[in-house]
Amino acid sequence: MDIPYTIKARPDTGVYNAKLGIWLFLASEVMLFGGLFSAYIFLRIGSAEWPGMINGQMYKSASEILNIPIGTFNTLVLISSSVTMVMSWASLMMKDFKKYRLYLGLTILLAFVFLIVKGFEYSEKFEHHFYPAKSTFLAIYFTLTGLHGLHVIGGIIVNAYFWGPGSKMWKTQPERFTNRIEIAGLYWHFVDIVWIFLFPTIYLL
């Protein structure tokens, strides 16, 4: 059985089905992260001091706890991965499969760099006994960045599939495969946008 509208646009929507599907999924993701962001706003406007008391010590700014240079580095890593992701799609549009694999491979690599750096950040927090249960600030920090990290892992899994076994489709249905990469890209850029808002609001303010 053929799945309809994987390449051609559906006449009533004007887009192929997967594109509508991913945008609906991303809309639900906006509400997921939006709920947590609103929780963050709620907790923050209700606090006299932010981050406040942790382990008996008063912290007056997030930069006393979080490492801004590392956060900046990770922001640049994620932005770069968005560029390599869109370049992998553009390479397929230009019928260059080798470049596609190179760019998607770089995207996966950059995603790993992001996670490794985040892992170092987390372990540094744990060394100082900064756990989620220790303060409201740490709870929302770990929840937001943790959920974002899970999304990065999800992106790695999907992209790794399209880099490896899933790329066989290029030989049989190149247009459908190109659309798949566009969809994977839409998800990946969304993960980037979430970080674009997370970084300044949690690290810098």
Binding site: A9, T13, G14, V15, K19, L20, W23, S82, V83, M85, V86, E182, G185, L186, H189, F190, D192, I193, I196, F197, F199, P200, T201, L204, L205
Partner: peptide, 26 residues
């Protein structure tokens, strides 16, 4: 911070996610 983040987010959404030339339903 929010204005700059919004500009950055809009740039990503408009160009990398092709929202500048997307269909009405989206």
């Amino acid at each position: 911070a929010l204005v700059i983040a919004t500009i950055k987010g809009t740039l990503v959404a408009s160009f990398f996610m092709h929202l500048v030339s997307e269909k009405k339903v989206i």
